[in-house]
Structure formats: structure tokens, C-alpha cells
Design a protein around this nucleic acid. Structure first.
Lengths: 212, 212
DNA sequence: CTAAATTTACGTGTTTACACGTATTTCATA
DNA sequence: TATGAAATACGTGTAAACACGTAAATTTAG
């Protein structure tokens, strides 16, 4: 299959991590074409050097790893994207499918997993950290439900996550607080949230990243 | 002052970061005595090699950077502790004073800051990331209040942060739910939390790291 | 333009959170 | 042993969150 060493670019906004990854890849004899400290640099590197693989942090200034993946797909770039992150982002898995993302590595296990990942990806085989896969079961249900929410309901959810009371939300949206209550009730039903008094607030707090 | 290069040990549970830091220090010509991947290894390195400086991640398996600092102080070890972390932990600053911690670096700025930090610390001058200092104003008030809580109140707070209702907490602690309510009320008073219905839950959620 | 989905709104009732006061017991320690 | 802090518990009352049903206005899509 892969006779030649794959060309790689990397990007991470944490200088230490970038250095660690960079040194590691070089020591292992990979063909590292360059590295960037933010999303913009990463994207420029990809368009200019057209590497086989781009290993990107998810959270970076200017462009996230996800946005870069989107752009790459939109421009039909053949670079295979591997994301690397600290957090076990739950909703990422299905986005990965949509965006041609080939791999997902947790920083905690990076060293062990990175070589396997590069090997797989070079051969066109997607690679995902095991720890991620464990979460998928949970993921699917939650996010399918999230998509069933109407625009207004999502708007309400965002306010809830911002610690607003029904009345505050109502006055900010110029609607009756009863309406907000109804939305709230509907949201709870749609999301299958356990019937406890503050469960929606809790849910909103725990998933507020998804609402942005 | 410091004629010789200071001896250093480092520890971080993220292999990539450890490698990045390690390579960086070696390249810069520092006297790196060793590195560990968790708190236990770090502490052993400190007791055995007695380095001038120990650069430790805060969150590590077995022992946190903070716990190591505690042990060092208890055993009157002269190693100067520098903590390094991703998060802008708020309540850390005052603990740093108590535990003889000499430095605090954010990983985001590590490369730029690390040399300054080592230089300062070698000369006995504490070094803290500027970004941390910005937060101190907020910190003092919040954490002073946190320390005014009684053990029971802290216990209750932890339960609240775990999404428990008063009744659930009550039954788990074998006390009346009225007692829990009273504690709750007292906590709110002590912490100067704004008087809104779910403000305590919100507070607990936002500060749950501090409660562990 | 019509049908379906969404948004808006209210009524009624329950549960939980929280305020404020009071009072008893337990416990450490001066 | 005495004194005060902390933990325990209750009464009474208010406000907010949530359930469930109903229904009108509005928007969107076919």
C-alpha cells in the first residue's frame, strides 16, 4: 500500500504540545512538512503543501480543527484530517463522519496511539481512540434528540444555560413567561430528561458547549 | 547568585507535553535530572535526586502537583515547586503561598514563560503567569468565603454539585431534608450568592472543581 | 392557497428551592 | 466544666420550575 512515508503537517496552539508532537514525529522518521500554532496557519499549510495527513488540535485560535476540516471538504482537498484533543468531546463522532475526518486521538494517549493512527490513515482506514468509541452509545441518542428541537426551543435552551430564569428570558424575548415555561416543558419532553426540578438547568449546563 | 545551572525534574501525565517540555529544557541546556508521568514518580524523583526545581502538572494520577508541594513542605525539602497547567485555576494563588510554591505557568504560554520562570525561581523570586494575576481580584473574595463554610456545608455543596435534590441529600446523609435546606440557606448567605432560585446550583456547577 | 408545524399564551396544580426565625443536641476546647 | 460553634430540625411563607391540557396566531412548505 503505502510505499512512501506520508507527509504530515501539525497544528496546536499549545507550544509545548506542538513541540512534543513535532519532535516525536521527526524522531520516528515521519515526513513532517510544517507546523502551525493556530487554525489559520494550519489551513495555509494544508493548502500550500498539500500534505497527506494533517494532525490538528480541535481548539485553536482563528479556526478550530473542525472548521478546517469543513473547509478542506468544501475545497475537495485530499489531505486527511486527524483531530487531537484533551477532551472527550461527545458530539464529535458524528461530525467526524460528515467532515471526512479520518482520526481522533486523545492527548492522554497520544504517543501510543499516534503511530497506529498514522499507519491506519495512510492506508485509508479511519482511526478513533477507544475511549471515544465508548461514549458513542450515549452520543447518538442525545444528539438526535437535540436536533428535534425547534429554533425557538434552542434559543430558550441557550438562555437557560446562561442562568436566566423564565421571567428574564420572557422579558428579553418580549414574550409571556408562560410561553417560556411551555417551551421548557416541551424541551424536557423532547430531550427525555429525567423529571426532577432542576434537571433542565443541569442538562443545559452540561451540554452548553453544544449549544453555541 | 546562581553560578551553576539549576537541576530540574519534570512531571506530566500527558506524554506529548512531557516530551515537549523535556526536549525544550534539554535543548536550552538545562540540567534535567529526570521526568515522571504521574505524581508518584514525580515525588520519588524529588526525594531521590533533590533537584533545585520541580516543574509539575497540577492534575496527575496518584498525586496532584499540589499534594506533592504539601509533602515537600512537610518534609522540609528544598526543591522549589513550579506548577504548570492548562486551566486558570482560580483558588490556586493563595494555596501557592501556603505551600511554598514558587511558580505557576499556563501551558498556553509555557515556552515564552518557562525560561523567565526558571531564572526567577533560581534566584528565589516567585513567578506567576500574568493571566493568573488578572484573576486574583476575583479570587480572594470567593475563596475566603469558601473557607468560611463548615465541613457539613461543604459536604452539602458537593452533593448539590452532583445534581442531588435536598431530599436525596437528606436521605443519603440520614438527616432531615429541612436540615439540608437550612444548610443550603446558610451556604448561600456565607457565599454571598445572588438571591435567585437556582443560584446555588449554578454556583456549585461553576465551582465544582474547587469542591473536590 | 391549504395543511402542517411552530410559536404564542393561559389555567391549574405539584414539587423544589430559598428566606428567616427559632430551638435542641452534639462536640471541641479553653 | 463551661462556653460557643456546628449540626440538627421545624414552622411559615414566597418564588420558581415543571406537568398536562387547551387553544389561538403565525409561519412554512407543499
Amino acid at each position: 500500500m503505502s510505499e512512501t512515508t506520508p507527509s504530515i503537517i501539525i497544528a496546536d496552539d499549545h507550544p509545548l504540545l506542538l513541540k512534543g508532537l513535532s519532535d516525536f514525529l521527526i524522531e520516528k522518521g515521519y515526513n513532517l512538512l510544517g507546523s502551525g500554532k493556530d487554525g489559520r496557519e494550519a489551513y495555509n499549510l494544508i493548502t500550500q503543501k498539500k500534505p497527506d495527513i494533517a494532525i490538528l488540535d480541535i481548539q485553536m485560535p482563528y479556526m478550530s480543527g473542525l472548521e478546517i476540516a469543513q473547509q478542506c471538504k468544501a475545497n475537495a482537498l485530499e489531505t486527511k484530517i486527524v483531530l487531537i484533543t484533551l477532551h472527550k468531546e461527545k458530539e464529535l463522532y458524528q461530525k467526524a463522519q460528515e467532515l471526512n475526518i479520518f482520526g481522533y486521538i486523545l492527548k492522554e494517549f497520544a504517543l501510543e496511539e499516534i503511530e497506529t493512527c498514522i499507519k491506519n490513515v495512510t492506508e485509508g482506514v479511519p482511526f478513533f481512540s477507544e475511549k471515544i468509541k465508548e461514549l458513542i452509545g450515549v452520543v447518538f441518542m442525545e444528539d438526535c434528540n437535540l436536533n428535534t428541537l425547534t429554533p425557538s426551543e434552542k434559543k430558550i435552551l441557550k438562555f437557560i444555560a446562561q442562568d436566566k430564569t423564565n421571567k428574564e428570558i420572557a422579558s428579553q424575548l418580549f414574550i409571556s413567561y408562560r410561553t417560556v415555561e411551555k417551551h421548557r416543558s416541551n424541551i424536557i419532553t423532547k430531550l427525555n430528561i429525567e423529571p426532577k426540578t432542576n434537571s433542565l438547568l443541569i442538562w443545559a449546563k452540561e451540554h452548553h458547549e453544544k449549544l453555541l
